[in-house]
Amino acid sequence: MILSSHFNYWIVIVLMMIGFFIVISHGNLVKKLMGLSIFQTSVFILYISMGKVAGGTAPILDEAYSVYSNPLPHVLILTAIVVGIATTALGLALVVRINEAYGSIEEGDIEMQDCDKLDKENANK
């Protein structure tokens, strides 16, 4: 019983974790942002799943239907999607500037350059 009813949630969790894994393990800045958006999208799916009522229909009132899914999670997720795209846009803008400043969008390269600079500063001491 649990198996069938929770299958949905488990898939969501696996998706979430894939996204999360991409964010942490990948060095490429754009890829990280993609991972972040997968992570967020799967959270959205989790929310939307909560609102579903078996046999229900979209919450647009009509005399033909009596069972509707809960509109509240939908509203929350609309807001969250917008927040997500706002973050992605800002993140990408940062990536563009980082690429201009460092000539790379790989985490490793950037940290190496910063370390070199820090060493130089310390050497001047």
Binding site: V30, L33, M34, S37, T41, F44, I48, S49, G51, K52, G56, T57, A58, P59, I60, Y68, S69, P73, H74, I77, L78, I81, V82, G84, I85, T88, A89, L92, V95, V96
Partner: peptide, 25 residues
Amino acid sequence: MDAVDVAFTEASVGAGISTILMLST
């Protein structure tokens, strides 16, 4: 899941805007 409004937004944002932005980047 009956969330038509959300689907509408996700399609236009996720598949539209963010793809364009990522490609430009």
